[in-house]
Structures are given as C-alpha cells and as structure tokens.
Design a protein around this nucleic acid. Sequence first.
DNA 1: TCCGTCTAAATGTCAGACATTTGGTAGGTA
DNA 2: TACCTACCAAATGTCTGACATTTAGACGGA
Lengths: 237, 237
Amino acid sequence: MSHRHQTVLAASFEPVRGQRLSTMIVEQLQSAIFSGAIAEGSRLPPERELMARFEASRASVQEAVHILERTGLVVIRRGAAGGAFVTRPDFLKIGSMLKLMLQANRFALGELYEARLLIEPGGAEIAARLATTEDISNLRATIQFHREIPADMPSPIGRNFHYLLACITANPLISMLVSSLLGVAQAYRLQQPLATRSERLLAHEQITDAMEARDGVLARQILETHLRCLLRQAQQS
Amino acid sequence: MSHRHQTVLAASFEPVRGQRLSTMIVEQLQSAIFSGAIAEGSRLPPERELMARFEASRASVQEAVHILERTGLVVIRRGAAGGAFVTRPDFLKIGSMLKLMLQANRFALGELYEARLLIEPGGAEIAARLATTEDISNLRATIQFHREIPADMPSPIGRNFHYLLACITANPLISMLVSSLLGVAQAYRLQQPLATRSERLLAHEQITDAMEARDGVLARQILETHLRCLLRQAQQS
DNA sequence: TCCGTCTAAATGTCAGACATTTGGTAGGTA
DNA sequence: TACCTACCAAATGTCTGACATTTAGACGGA
C-alpha cells in the first residue's frame, strides 16, 4: 500500500480525483431538486438517512445541506418535525448574494450605471404597458415615503422606486437582476450620493406620470436620461 | 435549568437566538476580507488556529471556510503549504452561481428572452464602439467553430457568440449578467432549440459585419430583431 | 377546554482520531 | 555539482460517537 506511486501503467489515465464529499452530495441533491424528484415543499430525508444513502459521515452530509440552505434551495427547521424543506430561493435573497459577490470585485461605479442603463429603461417601457392603477399608486406612495424619511436613512428594497418599477414588468428575472444591481448600488451610494434628493424625486415623479399616461416610450426616455446623467457624473469622479 | 421557559421578564426582548456557528464565522471572515484586513492573496490562519480564535470546533470552522470557498472568496489548497488563500471571485463563477439560482425558479422561456432582449442589444451597441480588430476576428472564429462542430454538442461558454459579444463591452457586470442568462438558456435549449442553426449563424454574421463597420445601431437592431423573433416563438409554444 | 409536562425526532456542536495531500529537506549517487 | 529518492511535517479531508438544543405532538390533570 505504500508504493501507490509505482502504478503499473494504468489502463485509464483519468485522475478522477474525487472532489470534496460535501460538494458531490450538494450536486446530487441539487439535481434531484431541479429535476423535481424532490418536490417543492417536501422534506429531504433526515441526516441520518442521507448518511446511509451517500455512505458518508454526518459532517459531510450536514455541510452539504447547509450549503443548500445558503444557496436558498432549502430551509432547515430544527426540532421534532424539522428537517430540510425544499423551497424556492426568493429573488431578494439571490440579489443579496449577488451583491455580496459583486462587492468582492470592486467595480467602477460607472460600470454599474452602464449596466443599469441597459436594463431599466427597457424595463420601464414594458412596465408602462402592464401597470395597473394599483401599481401606479404604489409608486406614488413610495415617492411620498422617500420625501418624508430622513435622507441618511437607507430605505428597504421594497420601498425602492426602481425595484418596484422592475416588479411591474411581471418578469421575475428582470426584478431579480434589477434588485441585484440596486443592492450593489446601495453599497456604493453610502459613500457618495450622486444625485440630489430633489433631482431623484423629480425624475421618479415624471416617470410615474408617463406611466399613468401609458406612454412607455416617454417613461423610458426619462429614465434613460436620468441614469445617463448619473453615469456621466460617475465617470468624472 | 429545566425551567428555562419561565423566564422572569427579561429586560431585553431581543431573542438574539444565535445563528449557526459556521454562519457567524463566515460573516466575520467575510467582513475581514472585505475590509482588507486580510489582503488578497494572503492566507487565512490554519483551521486549528481559527478554532482557538473563534472558540469553535473544527467542524464549524471548516464548514465556514468551505462556504467561503464556494462563494469564491478563497481557494483552498491541501498539503504542506496549503490553506485558504483570499482570492477574488471571477465573474464566470459568480455568473454560474447566479445561473444556479435563476434555474431554481422555473421561468417561462419567454421571460428569459425578454430579459435578454433588454440587455444584449444595448450591449452590442456598446461593443461595436469598443471592438478591436482582434475582437472581430475572435467573433468570426467562433462562428466558424460553430459551423463545424456537430449540432448536438453543447459548446463551452467561451465559444458562445453572445457571451463574447458581452465581453467586448469591457464591463464585467454586463458579461456576468449575460453569461448567467445564457447558462439558464442552455438548460432550456436542450429541450427544444428554437432557432435553426443556419438562422442563428446568419444573424451572428450580420452582427459581426455591422460591428466591423462600426455601426452600433445596426448591430443592435439585428440582435434585437433576432431575439424578438425567438421571443415570439417561445410565447407561442 | 385549557394548561403544563413529557417524549421523541430532528438538527447543532464538539472532541479526538485517522487518512490524504503536498511542499520541503536531507541524504545518497552519478 | 546536479539529480533523484525517501522521509517528514503541515495542512486539509473524513469518520465516529457522543452530548446539547430545539420543537411538534401526545398525554393528562385542573
């Protein structure tokens, strides 16, 4: 056993050096979840049973399940009827994770606005087509909300005008992407707010007006101008 | 000790129910990394030492470090001079995680194209401004590559026309978003390819031609038309 | 009916051991 | 000197078995 390196010209050159056990378990569970073999809301087998199935220690199994929870694929409840329940990662959680990782690479602020400029104006146009009167009044309420709270208080994402706008598109992919970008933006903005509050509120109001008039093109233009202005400022600083 | 629930009107109502140990360790290490207290490229203390610092078991510490690795914040090397080295998550890795989470929510194919329609045409316009002759020949090489490989063989992301296009924007945020969306798209496309190969290749060639002519608007239009056509098909099916 | 209490199932954590990987070092040999 | 080999030590990977904690539900008494 001590002469493993004197291998006698093995037929297969594949190293197949196993990954970490927990990683492989994660992958198997993931594909089981994606394939629908484990339905949403149902419970994964308890750890002891997974141990037996994967022929791994509890530590490895547990780490795998914890990673799944961190990814947002399951929630773990302790106690008698507890366990790991398959769930759907809500896109706020996804956004916050993305934000975290974006934060690690330090992007230029300009790059951020450039990306927003790609998504949001087009999103506004779609939103204008779909907005209900309730959506509109939601937007107005948010504007009012921001008018009242102190400027230094960061507002929750649910009260963010741009996020609400994205949600109106009824395309979860879009709202997710926007919420991620906004999360990154927030981390930057704490350092240096680019637009004055009144400028921002004015733009938001104009956009809402345009949407109420069902003028998608106008809404798009205003948002585009607004963001492009911020982009220029960001590139200068 | 068995009457814990008869708490005598605690002064603080905060449950402060401790999170998982590994989670708290992850957070501390993360903020240490983000703050720069642990420089990029340097090594985290070995597990035994982290055990002592956090007063936790090796299992907890190890799980935390593994999670950091999964997040892309460190790479772990085994062996003598091994350990967890602080690194920067490259955006392909981030993109793949985003893709994973997008995949978990099952989107309609139409929503996917709608999102791509927001990002990619604008991205193409930016790319047309910045493309070098080398970029152009890269694009052509990719088209040729796809012309030659069998249709059923999935191509690597580095050979994906749309991804290359996004990379030319020189905005890592954009390439990341696009690569994520493409990843999701790939999972779908295995089921049903919407565009015929010749249609796709033709569109790609036209876009490249437009970029070579520095006609950003045209490149944008072609890509937009192409995607919008696919979107319509997706909505019908 | 409304409580407390107990129980069992499940996760959370720990300690210690052994296995594996891998860089470096010391020594021998051409 | 240059190269190869064997060995060592540091570090992560994994397992085992135990104990701690949480919590839903069952059981029973006022």
